[in-house]
Nucleic acid binder design. Structure first.
Lengths: 152, 152
DNA sequence: AAAAAATAGTTGACACAACAACTATGCAGG
DNA sequence: CCTGCATAGTTGTTGTGTCAACTATTTTTT
């Protein structure tokens, strides 16, 4: 049986979604909203951030960003202003209510990582992280939409 | 910025889907159908295989399996028989036409892997594979639906 | 300064996968 | 036997994400 990174990543992704939706249900946070909240938890956004920047960082389509942000606004976890310096853009902020979710969210996330990696060699886990980062980096910086054309 | 396996896996998964849909368009194969075709390419299925078994191996919901198989039947890549030994089950086979897709499919897949891993340390890539496998293994064999309940 | 191109965001349509409810078949204990 | 439970598969509904088309602004070109 040949190894397939596609299969593994697919399973990890899908099960992760199920876990998150389940584990964060009580906090009213869905798997699709989580990446955005995490961005606010982990970065300085006191000046607000545009949806474009969120999309670019998460490599998520701007349509999905628009919908997730809308949903988080409605739930009161985020707040939106028009950017007066560039009136095309929004400036998105984390609200106090959003900030209050940090603890639960990080706990659930930490428990998932803990579950996935416990018993594994820490060094190997680090290596995995690093390789995944390199592959994502490559996708960000290369136009790979036609990579097979070069080969024929 | 804290490391997040979730973010990396998510990006890998989504971009992989986009790549596959693009690279296999000419072969009339979609990203959702691919895992099933691959199973037939990589395993002995001369006796046919049930949808249940496919679902179990790919960890894909049986509903998704039913739809992908339906679609591949319609395209003529797979063939279906009632299992006479257990009339609830289907026996699914790869057709000659399906077999003919092997070359293109494997080429496109190989090119993607090549692109993702070129320039990376081969040893590290192996380690990544192994760690991903271990994590998937853990998800298969553990009931993790409430892992955070233990912790409080 | 006017025209053209680029950028930020929204919306509609569709692909993909999960869950629940359902049908049909098989099996086990009374 | 037959009643109840388990298994294989199908279908409806919903959440998630991509792409394309559109509006509204900003920037660049001429």
């Amino acid at each position: 049986m040949q190894k397939s990174v596609g299969r593994l990543v697919s399973i990890l992704y899908r099960k992760n979604q199920v876990y998150l939706n389940c584990a964060l249900k009580s906090a009213q946070i869905t798997a699709s909203e989580l990446p955005f909240l995490l961005y606010f938890f982990r970065n300085d956004t006191t000046a607000g951030i545009s949806q474009e920047a969120l999309s670019a960082y998460l490599l998520i389509d701007k349509a999905a960003t628009a919908r997730a942000v809308q949903s988080l606004l409605k739930k009161g976890f985020l707040r939106k202003e028009k950017d007066e310096a560039d009136r095309r853009a929004n400036k998105i902020f984390l609200t106090e209510l959003g900030e209050q979710q940090r603890t639960v969210v990080q706990a659930r996330l930490q428990q998932w990582t803990q579950f996935l990696t416990e018993g594994l060699d820490a060094q190997s886990v680090d290596t995995m992280f690093h390789v995944l980062e390199q592959m994502v980096e490559k996708m960000e910086t290369t136009d790979w939409h036609n990579i097979w054309r070069n080969a024929e």
